[in-house]
Amino acid sequence: NQASVVANQLIPINVALTLVMMRSEVVTPVGIPAEDIPRLVSMQVNRAVPLGTTLMPDMVKGYA
């Protein structure tokens, strides 16, 4: 099963993503693939993302 990107903490809106904010985990439904974590660094989410939430492509500005 493919690992997805999961919030490692509350990720506020309009804050640049850092490695420490994200972890990889096998979850259902599948979200952004874990291998895209380096690409996500410095991008921003378009809504607050609670701890443990799977990041979906539509949550990250400029990802999709």
Rank of each mutant, 00 (worst) to 15 (best):
N14A: 06
N14M: 07
M43V: 04
T54A: 05
N14E: 08
V30G: 09
I11C: 03
T53Q: 14
P29I: 05
P57S: 08
V27Q: 04
A3G: 10
P57E: 06
N1V: 15
A34W: 06
A34L: 03
P12K: 09
A3P: 13
T54H: 02
G62H: 12
P29S: 04
T28R: 10
L40P: 00
Y63I: 04
N1K: 13
I13L: 14
A3L: 11
P50W: 04
P29C: 04
V6D: 01
I32V: 08
V15Y: 15
M43R: 08
A48M: 13
I11T: 00
A16K: 11
V45D: 00
P57F: 07
V20D: 15
S4R: 01
A3H: 11
L55I: 14
A64E: 15
P12M: 07
T53H: 14
M59F: 13
R47H: 11
V27S: 05
I32P: 01
N8R: 11
Q44C: 05
V41K: 06
T53S: 08
L55E: 01
N1G: 14
M21A: 05
P38G: 09
V45A: 05
M56H: 08
Q2Y: 13
I37L: 11
A3Y: 10
M56T: 13
E35A: 13
L19N: 10
V20H: 11
I11S: 00
I37S: 04
P38V: 08
T53R: 11
V49L: 08
Q2L: 13
N8M: 07
L55M: 12
D58H: 12
T28M: 13
N8P: 02
N46G: 09
M22W: 03
I11W: 02
K61E: 10
V20E: 14
I11E: 00
M21Q: 04
P38H: 14
G52C: 04
M22L: 10
N46M: 09
K61S: 14
V20Q: 14
M21F: 04
I13C: 08
N46Q: 12
I11Q: 01
V15G: 10
V26D: 08
N8S: 13
Q9A: 15
S24P: 11
G31I: 01
P29Q: 05
S42R: 08
V49R: 02
V45T: 10
P38F: 10
V27A: 06
T54M: 03
L40Q: 00
R39L: 11
M22H: 01
R23W: 03
V15L: 06
P33N: 08
Y63S: 04
I37R: 08
R23T: 09
D58G: 10
V49I: 12
G52S: 06
A16D: 13
V20G: 14
A34Y: 07
N14K: 08
P29D: 05
M56G: 04
I13H: 10
A48T: 14
P12L: 05
P29H: 06
I32Q: 00
V60M: 05
A3E: 13
V15I: 15
D36M: 14
R39T: 12
S42V: 03
G31L: 02
V60D: 02
L10S: 12
L17W: 02
V15K: 12
G31S: 01
Q9T: 13
V60S: 02
L19M: 14
V41Y: 04
M21I: 03
L51Y: 14
I13M: 13
E35D: 11
A3R: 14
R39S: 10
E25L: 08
S4Y: 03
I32N: 00
T28C: 08
M43L: 08
I13V: 12
L17H: 00
D36F: 11
I37G: 04
L19R: 15
T28E: 11
I32D: 01
S4I: 02
N1I: 13
K61V: 11
Q44K: 13
E35L: 10
N14W: 08
T53F: 09
R39Y: 09
A3K: 13
L19W: 10
G62A: 11
M56A: 07
L17S: 00
V30Q: 15
V41E: 06
R47F: 06
V49F: 03
N8C: 06
L10D: 13
G31Q: 03
P50C: 06
A3T: 08
G52H: 08
V45R: 00
G52N: 14
A64Q: 13
V6G: 01
I37H: 01
V20R: 15
L40D: 03
L40S: 00
A16I: 12
G52K: 03
I32S: 00
R23F: 04
K61F: 14
A7Q: 01
A3D: 05
L40V: 05
S42M: 11
T18L: 07
L51M: 15
R47S: 10
I32F: 02
G52R: 04
E25R: 09
R23L: 05
P12H: 09
P57G: 07
T18R: 15
I37Q: 04
M22Y: 02
D36A: 15
D36K: 12
M43W: 06
M43K: 12
E25D: 13
V45N: 00
A64T: 14
N14H: 14
T28D: 11
M21H: 08
E25F: 05
S42E: 10
T54W: 03
Y63Q: 04
V26M: 14
N8E: 07
Q44W: 05
N8T: 14
V27W: 02
T18K: 09
L17D: 00
D36Q: 14
I11K: 01
P57N: 05
V5L: 03
